[in-house]
């Protein structure tokens, strides 16, 4: 499986310079232009051509005009079909977006939205995939359709879908037209958590473990606080926003319970990536136990908190953490 992935990457890198790609337009949508479409006969098309050639030679030789007539008819159908194949891609609008974050090793999912802007419907538009069967969709005129693709992830960080190949063999499978479409869809890849991790040390002063039921949203309203990246949009006080008070989050929560610090320095593993995997496991465990926890990385600290937004923020830190530059401007409360 992995060989295959490497191979495609290799090909992509080596040849991408030779082929024209469909660039994204001003609105983020890539529109397939006539110079970016490549078309070649398929194996079936070559066989069709060979049979046609034999038919042509035979009919010419025996001066069989009806044979010629049918040979020419089939050749004309192929010729027209080639134009239909080409047309089927022309003017398609392609836009990709990343899916929800995944853990490294899982498949990152992307959605490629392929649409038509005119009245003409498109058929058999697909994105070739090595692992899954070729999935092709039909797009009614003025409409769009979504193709979901998965790409394996190996490392944490941002997985970017730099390019997708959109192809079609409509209508007769004699020709394959394709184009390379540039995308910027990214999916966040969390570190792969280890199977198990040591229990993180508790913060001083708070010893009594207290576990509460129910997610954050169900708790008492505590009051507003300024918006922070990662806050769920559902928590944003839109009414306040409409009154031009800026982005404000409605804060809920009970009394402050048990708190733990998940700390880079507490771990003994030497390989930074292993440490990050261990930290990820600790974060996930703490979130499952619904404990208030904070995250300390060299040069970065996430204050203790709880809930989905907090968990995501911590995982995002871990996904994007660059330990080689621990002293970069990210450093805040060292």
């Amino acid at each position: 499986m992995e060989d295959m992935v490497d191979w495609t990457r290799f090909r992509g890198r080596r040849l991408s310079g030779l082929f024209r790609r469909v660039a994204r337009g001003g609105d983020g949508v890539a529109r397939v232009g006539r110079r970016q479409i490549y078309i070649l006969p398929t194996g079936n098309g070559l066989r069709f051509g060979a049979v046609l050639f034999v038919m042509l030679l035979g009919s010419l030789n025996y001066q069989n005009n009806l044979g010629l007539l049918f040979t020419f008819f089939l050749a004309s159908v192929a010729l027209v079909a080639m134009h239909h194949t080409w047309f089927n891609l022309l003017g398609l609008s392609v836009q990709a977006r990343g899916g929800p974050p995944v853990f490294a090793g899982d498949d990152a999912s992307f959605e490629v939205v392929v649409g038509t802007e005119g009245k003409r419907a498109r058929y058999d538009v697909g994105i070739p995939a090595h692992e899954t069967p070729h999935q092709a969709i039909a797009i009614p005129g003025g409409d769009c359709g979504t193709i979901r693709i998965a790409r394996p992830t190996l490392r944490r960080g941002l997985s970017t879908l730099e390019e997708v190949t959109v192809e079609t063999r409509y209508p007769l499978h004699l020709f394959r037209a394709w184009c390379y479409v540039q995308t910027d869809a990214t999916t966040l890849v969390y570190p792969k958590p280890t199977q198990a991790a040591p229990e993180p040390g508790s913060a001083a002063g708070d010893t009594e473990p207290r576990r509460r039921q129910g997610p954050e949203g169900m708790e008492d309203y505590l009051g507003p606080r300024p918006y922070r990246e990662g806050d769920s949009p559902r928590q944003i006080d839109w009414k306040a926003h409409a009154r031009e008070r800026g982005l404000v989050v409605k804060q809920f929560g009970g009394d402050q319970g048990q708190e733990v610090w998940i700390d880079w320095t507490e771990l003994t593993a030497t390989d930074p990536e292993t440490r990050i995997s261990l930290l990820t496991r600790q974060v996930l465990d703490a979130a499952e136990a619904q404990i208030r926890f904070g995250l300390r990385l060299p040069g970065l600290e996430e204050a203790p908190g709880r809930g989905d937004g907090h968990l995501q923020r911590c995982l995002t830190h871990l996904a994007l953490y660059d330990h080689a530059q621990a002293n970069d401007p990210l450093q805040r409360t060292a």
Binding site: L60, N61, Y62, Q63, N65, L68, L69, F72, F73, A75, S76, V77, L79, V80, A81, H84, P171, L172
Partner: peptide, 26 residues
């Protein structure tokens, strides 16, 4: 649709495609 669009092309090829005046083999 394909067949109908192919018809004019067929006609052109039929009328104008060069013919052999004598068979190559028999």
């Amino acid at each position: 649709t394909l067949a109908l669009q192919a018809l004019p092309l067929t006609l052109i090829l039929f009328l104008l495609f060069p013919r052999l005046s004598a068979p190559l083999w028999n």
